[in-house]
Simulated scan of single mutants.
Amino acid sequence: MTVAKTSVLVLDCAEPLELAEFYAALLGAEIHRGDDPDFVEIIGHRGVHLAIRRDLGHAPPSWPRPEDSLQSHLRILVGRDDLDEAEREVVGLGARPVETGERGGPREVRRYSDPAGHSFSLAVSPAPVTAPPSPDHR
């Protein structure tokens, strides 16, 4: 028997409730607080599930500078026609655009840091892949 599993991306920061409020507003999710004041979960629609954990020694990565590698980042998918509006929303909530030096081509991915310095991006949601008809399908 296989045990049912789910996963949660946990972000470390100095002020978990403040960061949870940022992501809850951005993702249209709810904040769930348990007995541990240093651990907050954000749960929303369509499988959104993040957690924020207090780490008083947290230092955000320096990405995209080469001194530190990108440890992980959250990619938030939006419709192609909604990308500009989503960008206004994240900046209005306190995110900071991250300059990556990429200048060519359409900007289907835009990078930011959240109020605690974690990297995330807004990206155009890929079109659903449709399988070719089966040879037996007539």
Rank of each mutant, 00 (worst) to 15 (best):
E102I: 14
E15W: 01
R96E: 13
R96Y: 00
G94F: 07
L93R: 02
R33W: 01
H118R: 05
S72A: 15
L77S: 13
G94S: 05
F39K: 04
A20C: 06
T100S: 00
P61E: 14
G57I: 00
L50W: 02
D84V: 13
L74A: 03
A86G: 06
E89Q: 14
L83W: 02
T100Q: 04
S119A: 15
E41T: 14
H58T: 02
L11C: 04
G44I: 07
P60K: 10
R138N: 08
S125H: 12
A20R: 01
E108C: 01
V10N: 09
H58D: 06
R80N: 08
L93F: 07
A123V: 00
P128R: 08
R46W: 03
M1S: 14
V40P: 10
S62E: 13
L17S: 07
V129D: 05
L17W: 07
L74D: 03
L9P: 00
G57K: 10
A95I: 04
H118Y: 06
L77Q: 11
A127T: 07
A123K: 04
D136S: 13
E102A: 11
D82R: 09
G92N: 08
S69F: 04
Y112K: 10
R46C: 07
I31V: 14
A4G: 10
G94Y: 05
H118S: 07
D35Q: 14
E18S: 14
V10K: 03
G79R: 14
R110S: 05
L19V: 03
G44V: 03
P126W: 12
L11A: 12
R80G: 01
P37S: 11
E41C: 05
L11V: 08
I31N: 03
L83V: 02
P115W: 02
D68F: 03
A116I: 04
V78A: 12
L27Y: 06
V78T: 10
G104T: 12
H49I: 00
L122Y: 04
D81E: 15
G34R: 01
H49R: 15
E30R: 13
H118K: 09
I76C: 13
E41R: 15
A116K: 07
L19D: 02
H137I: 02
P16T: 04
P16Q: 05
V124A: 06
R46G: 08
